[in-house]
């Protein structure tokens, strides 16, 4: 089972990103379970999305305590609470202009960064970074298939469809990865 957490703030599109990922895995024939928790639907408050992907039905209904991957929409959300339960195998994807080596102090985990804001702005999407982050995610985790993901982005983008599809592919190409420090 692949277990993911997405951490964002209300209004950033983190919940929608979770739904897009879940849809892509669903279309690949996987069982998925994806849900978000939030303290009232307000802009700016932290929103956590949890996704499980498996070949068999997902039965447990609880938070993900040991994620295989985390997508962090905003480095200001990189709190110790967000990183509890990570292991050397956990992939942490951060939306940041900084390179992954600059997050070495986070400890023994695999950090990837993507300058999603610059990419999104360059593609005319303003501050909407979720499609870029999803493309980067598909690269660093190796799933879902990029073409399946881009097709789901095409189906669900409310507008600027081509811009979102391009941002997804740009995210896939431009993500920067650092392997965990050797133990």
């Amino acid at each position: 089972m692949l277990q993911l957490r997405i951490q964002g703030r209300g209004g950033q599109g983190a919940q929608l990103a979770g739904e897009v990922l879940a849809t892509a895995f669903f279309q690949e024939g996987k069982y998925v379970q994806a849900y978000s928790t939030y303290g009232g639907a307000r802009r700016g408050t932290p929103v956590s999305t949890f996704i499980r992907v498996d070949d068999d039905p997902v039965r447990e209904r609880c938070d993900i305590e040991e994620p295989d991957a985390i997508i962090c929409f905003d480095p200001s959300l990189l709190s110790p609470a967000l990183l509890t339960g990570v292991t050397a195998k956990t992939v942490l994807l951060v939306n940041s202009v900084r390179g992954p080596e600059e997050f070495a102090d986070l400890g023994d985990l695999r950090v990837a960064t993507i300058d999603a804001l610059t990419i999104a702005r360059g593609n005319g999407l303003g501050r909407i970074v979720n499609s870029t982050l999803l493309g980067a995610f598909a690269r660093v985790v190796g799933a879902p298939d990029l073409d399946v993901l881009v097709e789901v982005i095409r189906q669900v983008s409310p507008r600027k469809v081509d811009e979102n599809m391009k941002s997804t592919r740009d995210g896939y190409e431009l993500v920067r990865m650092r392997e965990g420090a050797p133990r």
Binding site: T23, A34, R61
Partner: peptide
């Protein structure tokens, strides 16, 4: 059914 774990969980 329960909030979030069921109500908001996307599933097949």
């Amino acid at each position: 059914h329960e909030a979030f774990y069921v109500s908001h969980a996307l599933e097949p």
